[in-house]
């Protein structure tokens, strides 16, 4: 299944103002893996995602998706395989109804309207908001918006899901529902987040970024419990693993 492998080789990116956001990052993500990318604010996570998706192009190094180099030419094909869910669903849901939003992608690839409809309904069904299909995005709750944003990506039937802070600004119930949903997907998942408890539960592997470089890469169960590493990278170990606030003992 090397077919769906995502590979990043010695990636560098410098913003026009001279800020070095990504500074020599390399990793390989295999098919079906679930990877958390974590790091403090400004560590370079978002830039890394933009480079992965081909929104930005690296100053040095390369990104390979399924052994295809990401270039302007290969982008259309690659973007069908990789779906990205933005941090703010309002940026992603730009149409006037949920249905049109989810249909936006498939329609851009000039699929038959019948096929578009099938995919839209399927995607909405998957995230459990089929009943909201005719609603306007501005009338959805935070959790519903997030689900709609995910559906808008699923309708392209990607192999790889890239998500930027999927649980931010969600209430606890919605967060839990979303985590269950993500856990049920068989896609390759690449998730950036500050919600370390979510990463701990959902991702088998974690990559810690610090100042545009990889500080650690390995099994989540090892990395996230390393209090010194976490501290050095502006993070902390997941709350679930910290002292219990009621009884004051390590759980």
């Amino acid at each position: 299944m090397s077919h769906h492998m995502t590979e990043v080789k010695d990636l560098h990116y410098v913003y026009p103002d001279g800020h070095k956001a990504v500074n020599g990052i390399s990793f390989k993500i295999h098919h079906g893996e679930s990877v958390g990318i974590i790091g403090a604010n400004g560590a370079g996570k978002s830039t890394l995602l933009m480079l992965l998706m081909g929104v930005l192009f690296p100053c040095q190094g390369e990104v390979l998706v399924g052994e295809v180099l990401v270039t302007k030419k290969t982008l259309p094909g690659i973007r069908q395989r990789m779906g990205m869910v933005f941090q703010d669903p309002d940026d992603q849901l730009f149409m006037t109804t949920v249905y049109d939003d989810v249909a936006f992608g498939p329609r851009n690839y000039n699929l038959e309207e019948k096929e578009v409809e099938k995919r839209v309904l399927q995607a909405l069904e998957m995230v459990g908001i089929l009943h909201l299909k005719d609603r306007a995005p501005f009338k959805l709750s935070g959790g519903e918006k997030r689900a709609a944003a995910i559906a808008s990506v699923l309708s392209l039937q990607p192999d790889i899901l890239v998500m930027d802070e999927p649980t931010s600004a969600l209430d606890p119930k919605s967060r839990r529902r979303l985590m269950k949903l993500l856990d049920s997907f068989e896609h390759t998942k690449i998730i950036t987040s500050h919600d370390l408890d979510m990463v701990y539960e959902l991702c088998d592997r974690s990559i810690v970024i610090k100042d545009g470089e990889i500080a650690a890469d390995g099994p989540t169960s090892k990395i996230l419990v390393d209090a010194d590493l976490m501290d050095a990278c502006g993070l902390e170990i997941p709350l679930a693993l910290q002292n219990c606030p009621v009884c004051g003992r390590k759980k």
Partner: peptide, 23 residues
């Protein structure tokens, strides 16, 4: 900035400047 993000979200879903409506 928001417009920029919206544009990126559109591009990532195959937008090429043409807006396709359904039937």
């Amino acid at each position: 900035e928001r417009a920029q993000r919206v544009y990126q979200a559109m591009c990532l879903r195959g937008f090429t400047g043409e807006y396709n409506t359904g039937a």
